[in-house]
């Protein structure tokens, strides 16, 4: 089975966000770039699936400027077989990313796609659905358990209030994974050596027939939220603190 993993490179969660001068994006200097944490679970799930099926390959795909190659090499060091870089510096949105990545999946003859449930930068949680629809494949998101047997895929997805759905679908499909599905492995030393030498396939947007495609949503006017001010500290012993807190929440804040 040719397994494709769609990977996004994002600023590390510890990044303190600053807004760029034109307010059209965040300030990208001094950002530590990492693989989107949810996509790390997707890579691990793809590697596990290949090991379990004892056949096939894992190809990681990422879109963006040259810096994303570093994330692709990290994925190879973890155990991925191949990597594809869709090289572009243009602005992207969920539509354009979804449509482009669907073309990559077709070109690479993908039979199963894993990705993270959302990028922790744009928080759109939409790539999986766009890709699935453009490929006309079934999909599942927020997947916390995934079993692949022959051409039948069984997943569990989180819904609300502690409920899980068990879903079945035929392959090929797009599976967007959530935290908790597995524990991503570390890169091995031989893996790191292999990753350094591995040739990474590069596509331009026009290689994928996407030269005339454009984004459908335009983002602008980035803003930082208002800073919260530190409020009151309550004094006394635990009993009187608790009593005073409940009084304030009731009478002053009026939230209970």
């Amino acid at each position: 089975m040719n397994i494709i993993v769609l990977v996004k490179q994002v600023p590390d969660t510890e990044t303190k966000i600053k807004i760029s001068g034109d307010k059209k994006s965040i300030e990208k200097t001094d950002v530590k770039w990492v693989i989107n944490p949810y996509d790390e679970f997707a890579i691990e799930q793809a590697l596990k699936t290949k090991e379990q099926l004892k056949a096939g390959s894992v190809t990681v795909v990422s879109m963006g400027p040259d810096r994303v190659v570093e994330s692709l090499r990290t994925a190879i060091a973890m155990g991925a077989d191949n990597a594809v870089h869709v090289k572009t510096d243009q602005p992207l949105d969920s539509y354009l990313v979804g449509k482009t990545l669907a073309e990559v999946v077709k070109k690479e003859s993908g039979q199963l796609v894993f990705t993270g449930k959302q990028g922790i930068d744009d928080d759109q949680a939409a790539t999986f659905g766009f890709v699935a629809e453009f490929l006309n494949w079934p999909s599942a998101s927020m997947v916390v358990k995934c079993e692949i047997a022959a051409d039948k895929i069984t997943v569990q997805r989180e819904v609300e209030g502690g409920t899980r759905f068990v879903l079945q679908m035929p392959a090929p499909a797009v599976i967007a994974v959530d935290k908790g599905i597995n524990t991503p492995r570390y890169a091995s030393l031989p893996g790191i050596m292999k990753a350094k030498k591995k040739e990474i396939k590069t596509y331009s947007m026009s290689d994928l027939g996407m030269a005339s495609e454009a984004i459908k949503t335009v983002s602008a006017d980035y803003a930082l939220p208002p800073e919260r001010q530190a409020g009151k500290k309550l004094s006394g012993d635990a009993a009187s603190q608790a009593k005073e807190l409940v009084r304030l929440l009731r009478e002053e804040a009026k939230v209970i």
Partner: peptide
């Protein structure tokens, strides 16, 4: 932007060849 809306809207947007803003 519930678990349902977040799940089907990307598909619906793709059908319309349209963009999507989540949440």
């Amino acid at each position: 932007a519930s678990w349902q809306g977040k799940d089907y809207l990307p598909r619906l947007s793709a059908k319309f060849n349209a963009g999507l803003a989540s949440d």
